[in-house]
Amino acid sequence: MTFLRRFAHNYGALVGLAILLVVVAVAILAPVFFPSSPWESAGVPLLGPLEDPQFPLGTDMLGRDIAAGLAYGARVSLLIGVVSTAVAVVIGVSIGALAGFHGGRIDDLLMRFTEFFQTIPALAMAIVLVAIFNPSIVSITLAIAVVSWPPVARLVRGEFLSLRSREFVQAAIVVGQTGPRIMLTQILPNAVSPIIVTASLMVATAILTESSLSFLGLGDRNMMSWGFMIGAARTMLREAWWMSVFPGVAILLTVLAINLIGEGLNDALNPHLRGRRG
C-alpha cells in the first residue's frame, strides 16, 4: 500500500511507466500492425517521414518500413534486456550471497573472481564473446549477462556481509537455524529491495549494450533491432537523417523510461533515505 502510494507520488516514475507500457504494447502488437517481415522491401526506397502516409517514419535505402523496424526492434530490445538481466541477477545473487555469508577464504576467492570480470572492459568482452560464438539471440543474451553480473554480486555480498553480523541473524544461529535456511529466510528478504532497484537499472544498461552490439554488426541476423538500423543508417547520414534519428529516439525513450522507473523504485523502497525522523 504505502509502497504503491510512494511510487505513484513520483511523477518521473509514472511517466517512465507510461512510456514503457507503450513500448511493451508496440512490441507485443508488432505482427498485428505490420504483418509482413520488417526485412522486406515495402515501398519506394529513401522516402522521408510523412512523404507517404503509408510510411509515416519513411523508408530506408532498400525500401524497408522504418516504423515496422522500430516495432520489431522493440521486441529484441526488451527480450534481451529482461532475459540477460535475469541471468545476471541469478549469477550475481548466488555468488554474492555465498561470498557474503561465508566470508573468509570463500569470500576472497569469489570476490577476486568478480573483480576480474569487473576489471575487463565490458563491451570489449561482449564483442569478443559474440564474435567468437557467432551472433545469435542466445549468444548475445549470454554475453551481456556474463559482463553485467559483477555489480550485482558485489552489492549482494555487501548486503549479506552487513546483514550477517546483524543481531537478528546472530539470533537465528543461536536458536539453531541452519546456514541455507538463514540465508533464504532471514537475510535474502532484507536484501531484496536494493536487488530489485539494481536489476531494473541493469535492464536499461543491457538494452544499451545490445544496441551497441547490433550497431557494430553483431546482431542476430534474423531479428530486426534498433542498433542494427542505426548501423545501417550510418553511411546514409547525409541523405536520410530519419533512418538514424528515429531508432535512436526509440532507444533513448525506452532506456530513459526504465531508468526513471528504477529511480522511482529506489525512492519508494528506501523511504528512510528521503525524510528524517524528528
Binding site: R166, E167, F168, Q170, A171, A172, V174, V175, Q186, P189, N190
Partner: peptide
C-alpha cells in the same frame, strides 16, 4: 544456551 541481544532495533528481523 540462549542469548538476549543489545540492540532492540537490530535484533528482530524487520520482515
Amino acid at each position: 544456551m540462549q542469548m538476549v541481544f543489545q540492540d532492540p532495533f537490530a535484533s528482530l528481523n524487520p520482515r
